[in-house]
């Protein structure tokens, strides 16, 4: 393992900024475990991961990271209440079978949930749908409707509405571009929903 701080993806950097040092973290859909390694090295967190893809799991474990193979839809129910300080779900919510239930489980086993997802309300998607009448194709939404794993697209406004409906407090949120860099649409949800390519939310239970 490399002890030097490594440069990680901008969107993961943004997520890491939301995590308090020394906390217990579960990263769902952790891929090769880049974020949990970063949280362990830079923030002394007890960070673990769950990943669906066995190749990624092996890569992570062979790198010395605690990762188990599993599915967000079925695995979260096996954890006890309040076992973690943060449950992270990065760019995965739109691909799970029951997003609402997954969110509910996240805020049961963790005191905070950090969720990021591609924003289907972005202007370019709206424009494509309006002008061509076909499902939009962009850098973020780049698979045909019949083969995309992203079966539950939502917009930033949709997500705010769900949080309100299910009683989650939005402690922090921001809109980001495709690479994950922060965008300036902080003041207006409507502008964020139009110009943000991704939404990033820090939630806790009411």
């Amino acid at each position: 393992m490399n002890a030097l701080p490594k440069k990680i993806r901008v969107d993961l950097e943004l997520i890491a900024e939301l995590v308090a040092p020394g906390s217990r973290v579960l990263d769902i859909g952790c891929a090769d475990g880049t974020l949990i390694e970063h949280l362990f090295r830079e923030k002394q967190c007890d960070a673990r991961g769950v990943e669906l893809d066995m190749q990624e799991v092996q890569r992570a474990v062979a790198h010395g990271l605690p990762v188990m193979q599993g599915d967000a839809d079925t695995e979260l129910v096996t954890y006890p209440d309040n076992a973690f300080d943060y449950i992270i779900l990065s760019r995965t919510l739109q691909a799970v079978e029951k997003p609402r239930e997954v969110l509910r489980q996240m805020l049961r086993i963790g005191t905070h949930a950090i969720v990021s997802f591609p924003n289907f309300g972005h202007w370019s998607l709206r424009l494509q749908l309006l002008t061509k009448g076909r499902m939009p194709m962009t850098a973020g939404w780049n698979r045909m409707w019949f083969e995309t794993p992203n079966i539950h697209p939502c917009t930033i406004s949709d997500f705010f509405a769900l949080c309100e409906q299910d009683g989650y407090i939005v402690e922090n949120w921001l809109a980001a571009d495709e690479q994950g860099a922060r965008t300036p649409w902080r003041r207006s949800r409507k502008l964020a929903n139009l110009f943000g390519e991704q939404g990033l939310f820090l939630l806790r239970k009411a």
Binding site: D46, R48, M54, V57, Q58, V61, L65, P66, V67, M68, Q69, G70, E75, T78, Y79, P80, A83, F84
Partner: peptide, 16 residues
Amino acid sequence: ARALNHVAANVSFVEV
């Protein structure tokens, strides 16, 4: 692995 999750143990699980 799931039983270990129940007690929030530190567990890695791989099927080869």
